[in-house]
């Protein structure tokens, strides 16, 4: 187990490093030098060169990368070329927004998805087909389209929830929850459909295992077979599915943030890509990777812990 965790940690570290290199290269391929970007159109070539020299733009790539890496390890991701603010500070403000969104959507989609998937597998017949059709439709509808419809229904037609904006938790927990409601539901719809499918398939597979017959042969009540034994067996692939889902939702929050004007990482990356703000882009990519890899690691350990075979070894 300890060996397993060490291995996974090294893998995670490698992943982040690879992404850091990739991000660095991508950012350097962006059109326009930092000087040109930060000074904007109409700046003189001398001024641009001066800024570039100050930022070390003309140093060899390797030197630049290690300088960036050295700073990054100490928590300094550079300053924005557009408004000169610290990228780290900006992202620290934004991370909770996206994290709340992705975590909320993951939890909601897991609950909904498991409920739907288990019901479909256990009840069978018409209900199974109805849920299958419903889930198929949810998978096909783009999240942003569903989001707009939600805005129309719950914010325009009846103002149950605010249409846009984000209220920090510290300001008002109630408003925080209200401001998250629509974006979280929007994101969770597709995720729930995915997890429902995964759950249904895993439950059906669990029910095909021979030990289910043994349980019936010892007069185990049906509810116990379904919700204790079969669900426990199916929990491994379901949790793995939820882990995958989180990655998707973390990225998918870009769209929800745009739609609901949430000041999260997604909005940051969208803005900085549009304005060619290299340090910001690089910062977001790395931070997003760190978060996703970390959560993935935790969920993977959880999966392993659920499996007696792996836990014992």
């Amino acid at each position: 187990m300890a060996l397993f965790i060490t291995k996974r940690l090294l893998m995670a570290l490698a992943t982040v490093l690879v992404v850091a290199v990739l991000a660095f290269l991508l950012v350097h391929a962006m059109p326009g030098s930092p000087g040109a970007v930060s000074l904007g159109a109409g700046a003189s070539q001398d001024a641009i060169d001066e800024v570039n020299r100050r930022l070390g733009w003309n140093d060899p790539l390797l030197v630049q990368f290690f300088r960036w890496l050295g700073d990054a390890v100490q928590g300094n991701l550079g300053v924005s070329l557009i408004d000169g603010r610290s990228v780290s500070a900006d992202l620290a403000n934004r991370l909770p927004v996206t994290a709340s969104l992705a975590a909320g959507a993951t939890v909601l989609s897991a609950l909904l998805g498991i409920l739907l998937g288990v019901t479909a597998a256990v009840r069978g017949g018409f209900l199974d087909q109805a849920i299958g059709g419903f889930v198929g439709l949810l998978v096909a509808l783009p999240a942003f389209w569903i989001g707009i419809i939600f805005v129309y229904l719950f914010a325009v037609q009846s103002s149950v929830f605010p249409a846009t904006g984000y209220v920090p938790f510290e300001a008002s927990p109630r408003d925080w929850a209200m401001s998250l409601a629509l974006p979280v539901i929007t994101l969770a719809v597709g995720g729930a459909a995915f997890i429902a499918r995964q759950t249904r398939a895993s439950m059906l597979e669990a029910l095909q295992q021979e030990h289910i017959r043994t349980l019936r042969a010892t007069a185990t009540p049906t509810w116990k077979i379904l919700y204790i034994h079969a669900l426990r067996y199916a929990s491994l692939p379901i949790v793995a599915g939820i882990a995958l889902q989180f990655i998707g939702l973390f990225g998918g929050s870009v769209i929800a943030e745009q739609l609901f004007a949430m000041p999260g990482l997604g909005q940051a990356v969208q803005n900085s890509v549009s304005t060619h703000d290299a340090p910001s882009v690089q910062g977001v990519v790395v931070i997003a990777t760190v978060v996703v890899v970390a959560v993935n690691l935790v969920l993977e350990l959880a999966t392993k812990f659920l499996d007696p075979k792996l836990r014992a070894s």
Binding site: T15, V19, L22, A23, L26, V27, M30, I247, G248, F250, G251, G252, V254, L265, G266, V269, Q270, S272, V273, H276, V281, Q282, V284, V285, A288, T289, V291, V292, V293, N296
Partner: peptide, 13 residues
């Protein structure tokens, strides 16, 4: 285990 959307956006950048 990569945040695909964010990477795609960086490529767009």
């Amino acid at each position: 285990s990569l945040p695909g959307t964010v990477i795609i956006l960086a490529v767009i950048g």
